[in-house]
C-alpha cells in the first residue's frame, strides 16, 4: 500500500513514526484480507444493508431547525453568524 497516497485520500496527516508503524501493520491486515479473493462470488448480489428499505419518503413539511447561534456553538471559529476558515482562494 502506498501509505502517503492513501493517507492523503483520507485527509489524515501522519507523523513519520505513524507512517512507518502503519506501513507494516496495514500490510499484515491486507495479507489477512487476501482470504476474500478465494471466495467464489460469481453471480452473488452484494449486500449493502441486511434489511434494505427503498423509497423512504417524508412529507415535505417545513420544521424549525437550529438557530445560527445553536448551529455555530461548536464551531472552532465563527464571526457574523458564519464559520471562519483560512483563505482558500490562491492569489
Amino acid at each position: 500500500m502506498d501509505i502517503d497516497y492513501v493517507a492523503n485520500l483520507a485527509r489524515i496527516e501522519l507523523t513519520p513514526e505513524e507512517r512507518k508503524k502503519f506501513q507494516g501493520q496495514l500490510g499484515d491486515v491486507l495479507v489477512y484480507f487476501e482470504k476474500l479473493q478465494e471466495v467464489n462470488v460469481e453471480g452473488v448480489t452484494p449486500t449493502a444493508h441486511a434489511f434494505p428499505r427503498f423509497n423512504v419518503w417524508d412529507e415535505d413539511e417545513p420544521t424549525t431547525g437550529f438557530t445560527s447561534d445553536e448551529a455555530l456553538k461548536n464551531a472552532p471559529k465563527s464571526r457574523n453568524d458564519q464559520i471562519v476558515v483560512p483563505k482558500v482562494i490562491e492569489e
Partner: peptide
C-alpha cells in the same frame, strides 16, 4: 484548506481511528 482537514484529523484522531480510515479509503 487541505491543512485544516489533514492536520486537524492527524492531531485529533488516535492511532486506531487513523489506521481504519486509511484502510477504508484504500
Amino acid at each position: 484548506a487541505i491543512d485544516v482537514y489533514a492536520k486537524s484529523r492527524g492531531e485529533g484522531f488516535g492511532e486506531e481511528v487513523k489506521r481504519r480510515c486509511i484502510l477504508g479509503a484504500y
